[in-house]
């Protein structure tokens, strides 16, 4: 064994397809527990810092979470223009609310997560992700099922960010990727509000769920736009879908966006700015083609089942 490189204690095999594996090193297990809803690991993964694994799916790592979370939150906020009230569904790490709090005039951020134990573990072990966001007086943490919360929510949100875990059958969130649920989200938006969905991988063999989610959102909202970003630790390019009854600017002027960010945010972005947004909004042909062809939608009767079901355990 080399004296210079300490070998990892364990390897996490993250199956991207049945034939392709992304191995993450575990140098130390910081926390491993079975919560009421899912199995949680927080690990020291070496080069990329610390990682969160829920129900066997790699969620995020401190070394590249800004790529995911800035791409998840900021396009919806820029399109809305000046969000005051934002709702986050899921988002246990607290990095999603961190991104919303970058908007100076934000008055209220509600975060609804089903699993209090995951939130508490992230609050304790991921200060570099939430950066104290849980302690901000504008933030309200609600431990509740997201569907139930939306059922009773008045139409008061400028931005709703759905940052839920992938809809695996045994997991808590598969119902939240259906037409019925998206209609609830639509009702909960104020006029001019935007809904953003974490919408799974868009690599060629794994993009079918993303594509069908676009089709599902199109059945609810007037304007729907798919985009994605490369988050190295997730293995796949990761897809998001922005939906609204107001228009989505897919050719934003970078200078105008930068002016807006200077005026309305604390401008503390690592990845995001006007040029980044312009680039993010452009999707390659194969994804646009797949979206154009898709007609089926997910409903409560036919909800999505995330493809890990077919992967080796």
């Amino acid at each position: 064994m080399s004296e210079l490189v300490k070998p990892p204690l364990y390897w996490v095999a993250d199956y991207l397809t049945p034939d392709d594996v992304l191995y993450h090193a575990i140098h130390r297990v910081i926390l491993h527990k079975h919560t009421q809803f899912q199995e949680l690991w927080i690990v020291d993964c070496g080069t990329y810092g610390k990682g969160l694994i829920l129900d066997g799916i790699w969620q995020s790592s401190t070394g590249d979470d800004y790529l995911y979370h800035e791409a998840l939150v900021q396009p919806a906020c820029v399109n809305q223009g000046n969000p005051k009230r934002a709702l986050v569904l899921g988002g246990g790490e607290g990095a999603t609310i961190r991104e919303l709090l970058k908007w100076k005039e934000i008055e209220r951020v509600a975060m609804v997560d089903l699993d209090a134990e995951v939130v508490e573990a992230c609050r304790q072990h991921f200060p570099e992700m939430h950066q104290g966001a849980f302690d901000d007086p504008r933030v309200e943490l609600v431990i509740q099922d997201a569907v139930a919360y939306l059922d009773s929510s008045p139409s008061e949100w400028d931005v709703i960010i759905s940052d839920l875990t992938d809809p695996i059958e045994s997991g808590p969130s598969f119902k939240l990727f259906t037409k019925e649920y998206f209609a609830k989200a639509q009702k909960a938006l104020r006029p001019g509000g935007y809904f953003l969905l974490q919408a799974g991988p868009v690599s060629p063999p794994s993009m079918h769920m993303h594509v069908r989610l676009v089709s599902t959102l199109k059945a609810v909202f007037a304007h729907v736009h798919s985009y994605h970003i490369h988050v190295p630790m997730l293995g796949h390019p990761w897809g998001f879908i922005l939906a609204s009854d107001s228009p989505i600017d897919i050719r934003p002027d970078p200078a105008e966006v930068d002016q807006l960010l200077v005026a309305k945010t604390n401008a503390k972005f690592k990845m995001f700015d006007g040029i980044t947004l312009l680039g993010l909004m452009q999707s390659p042909k194969h994804i646009r083609d797949a979206i154009a062809k898709e007609t089926a939608v997910y409903t409560l009767e036919h909800p999505p089942v995330f493809s890990t079901q077919e992967l080796p355990k």
Binding site: M1, P7, Y10, W11, A13, D14, G56, I57, T308, P312
Partner: peptide
């Protein structure tokens, strides 16, 4: 996903 201990003696 699975977690593996790998020995490299």
């Amino acid at each position: 996903m699975s977690i593996w201990f790998t020995e490299e003696l």
